[in-house]
Design a protein around this nucleic acid. Structure first.
Lengths: 305, 305
DNA sequence: TTGTATGCGTTATCAA
DNA sequence: TTGATAACGCATACAA
């Protein structure tokens, strides 16, 4: 023990790992369909912040494995021997085999946000159904019946947006005013002329919607911009609702009504869950939901007649 | 080779590393004086994005070492055996011994943004002096002579903000209108009532400034808010300039005049530099500067008489 | 070219 | 309790 201090001895983590000791190291991966978009935006960086904070608390390191997941079980290989104990998959995209590929190699996994029950992988996510339900209740209360929904599609779709759309259709279907097909739109990217076109077409309908529910805030912000350019007042003529409550939601004019989800907490909880699984303290199939909160601001008002 | 495919053989990275093979793995650390602020904001996440992109290009993994750097050469120990080849220090804070501690243990280092010539460590940064000079030239051209500067101080000060203040003082000193001491303010956090107080006191001076140059955009945005609350028109009465060109700078009203620095590129270039050093392709002491670009928007106008 | 031994720094096992 | 030894999976150097 004296010699330890004397020589400033530090155990060699690699040798420990070679011998089967858990290295207290987590792998994470941001899956992105296009190059360079790793952690842009509030959504991913909040999740990452929760992950890094919680792993720090638990004494774990975090390694970012950035791979082209475009259709790649081979991207998944090689994780077993990397010295990581478990893996966090951040907001996987629908239609990718990433989750399946990773779960096949037998590494403990947790999906962080945008989970799907397609896979039998534990996850931590917001309760999207509850969130959509709160949005629609709010709009119904304001007298809205002609409600449109703009979703994400193509390479950018994540499971969250799919579930939100499904829930939207289901709840509308159970109401007195089922969603008309022409009110259901989707775009492949949020900040994109596509969105302008979708909004324009929506508002050019014989019976235009009085409210537009966008699948996330970035998209909702763009929708407001598009409406502004058309000279359509928000919320006087059309109400707009988003999802996420990114910081900009409270800064734009009009301030956005949206659904807040505790992203940092989701990232942190997913990390804790993964570590609990690694420690054998938690059953593998656990999945945890966080309740979202409707934040009513200025972009929604009574339905325009 | 057949057997490799047959058995899906994957070399054990740990064993390779134990044997002295470079693991193509980079360590990074965000130094933050308060808990939980790892990658909030555009500044850090842009740097991180550049780092992750460039390391991916080069086939390197990135491991986040989150430590309390509050005064800790012991935090630095234990990196030698972690299997990382080199280390990127992201925006170190002034007054911390983190850089010194890390450089003492002999790991190849590169400082990413907010570098200082206090340490003999290679770095990639924006040319702050050039940026400040462009700001002041712009303000001089608009007829401003009473120019205030608000800087960061205390635990949050990074080297960038220190250099910006020094440069401000130097250039003003060489001009016909040297900076008055009462025009030099600093706050400990950007978004903070402190900033309101500083602005209020500045504007209560017998000769209030006609322009305020904030050391970064977050601070500048808060300055505009403070001025608004005082009923002072921007830019009619006071011009405001920031630094960074965060996305919000173009979204607020009035749009912020600021200095754009290529953060993603800085992160990427720092990564490439570190890898070049690891490969022995680059001398150790190299340091690279990126030229910033003045972005003139709506928050600056001719000096109020 | 192909094969065999040695060391990398641990931990675990077994013997003393 | 202490001490020696094998094994982890690979790379390297050397022998065949």
């Amino acid at each position: 023990m004296e010699a330890v201090r004397e020589l400033k001895y530090q155990p060699n983590v690699l040798a420990q790992g070679l011998n089967g000791v858990r290295l207290k190291s987590l792998g994470i991966s941001f899956q992105t369909p296009y190059h360079g978009s790793i952690i842009t935006g509030h959504y991913r960086s909040s999740l990452l912040r929760g992950i890094i904070d919680a792993s720090y608390e638990a004494g774990y390191n975090v390694t970012v494995f950035h791979r082209p997941w475009n259709g790649a079980s081979e991207s998944a290989a090689g994780f077993r021997s990397q010295g990581i104990d478990g893996f966090l998959i951040i907001a996987p995209l629908a239609g990718s085999d990433m989750v399946t590929a990773l779960s096949n190699i037998g590494i403990p996994l947790v999906v962080v946000s945008s989970s799907s029950d397609e896979h039998d992988v534990p996850s931590v996510d917001v309760d999207n159904r509850h969130g959509v339900s709160a949005v629609l209740d709010h709009l119904f209360d304001l007298g809205h019946r002609r409600i449109a929904h703009i979703s994400l599609d193509g390479g950018f779709a994540n499971y969250d947006s799919i579930i939100r759309r499904e829930t939207f259709v289901r709840i509308m279907g159970e109401s007195e005013c089922p969603a008309r097909p022409e009110y259901l739109r989707s775009v492949t990217r949020e900040y994109n002329p596509e969105t302008d076109a979708a909004v324009r077409e929506l508002m050019a309908l014989p019976e235009p919607p009085t409210a537009i529910f966008a699948t996330n805030d970035t998209l909702a912000l763009r929708v407001i911009l598009s409406l502004n350019e058309l000279g359509i007042d928000v919320p006087g003529r059309v109400s707009v609702v988003g999802f996420d409550d990114i910081p900009d939601a409270a800064r734009v004019d009009p301030q956005l009504t949206t659904v807040r989800q505790p992203l940092i907490e989701i990232g942190a909880e997913a990390t804790r869950l993964l570590i609990a699984i690694l420690d054998g303290r938690e059953a593998i199939a656990t999945t945890r939901w966080f309740e979202p909160e409707l934040v009513v601001r200025k972009s929604t008002a009574a339905a325009h007649k």
